[in-house]
């Protein structure tokens, strides 16, 4: 089993905001530009490809203020997935996207990028367990 370090943490949370003076693709690509020193064009190509998995290619050039809750969640998720061997932790998804009836879209979004992360944990209140429709939910 791979050893996990805190630096692998890809946190998706309302407490970890997106950078307001960057547009969507730069918010996602920032980690690649900074840690891998990848070229701007290469990083943009990767990010646009990832946004395309969610049919959200058109938001790549938008500022964060122009996004709705779901789009902000997706940008945060993709940003977290840019961490090498990411351990994605989604902190209370229904706070991130308050108008979701259940966690189906969240699960679906994770499936679409499952090649990008090592592991994923969703942290939520126990009273939201029915919204996840999964059996192996652990409580602590």
């Amino acid at each position: 089993m791979k050893e996990r370090h805190p630096e692998n943490l890809g946190l998706v949370s309302t407490d970890i905001p997106l950078i307001s003076n960057l547009n969507v693709w730069l918010n996602i690509a920032l980690i690649r530009l900074y840690h891998l020193s990848e070229s701007r064009l290469q990083a943009k190509r990767v990010v646009v490809g990832l946004l395309n998995r969610f049919q959200k290619r058109e938001i790549a050039g938008l500022r964060i203020a122009a996004l709705d809750h779901w789009e902000r969640y997706l940008v945060k998720l993709l940003r977290a997935a840019m961490v090498q061997d990411a351990l994605i932790v989604i902190d209370r998804p229904f706070r991130l996207v308050p108008d979701l009836p259940d966690a189906e879209l969240i699960e679906n979004s994770l499936t679409r990028i499952d090649d990008l992360y090592f592991s994923c944990r969703i942290l939520d209140y126990s009273w939201n367990r029915d919204r996840y429709r999964i059996k192996d939910v652990s409580e602590s």
């Binding site: 407490d15 970890i16 905001p17 997106l18 920032l30 840690h35 961490v83």
Partner: peptide, 15 residues
């Protein structure tokens, strides 16, 4: 950036 915790976000991603 400080007030809106964007600097904390950079820190989380080791930037």
């Amino acid at each position: 950036m400080k007030v809106s915790k964007e600097l904390d976000a950079l820190n989380v991603f080791r930037i």
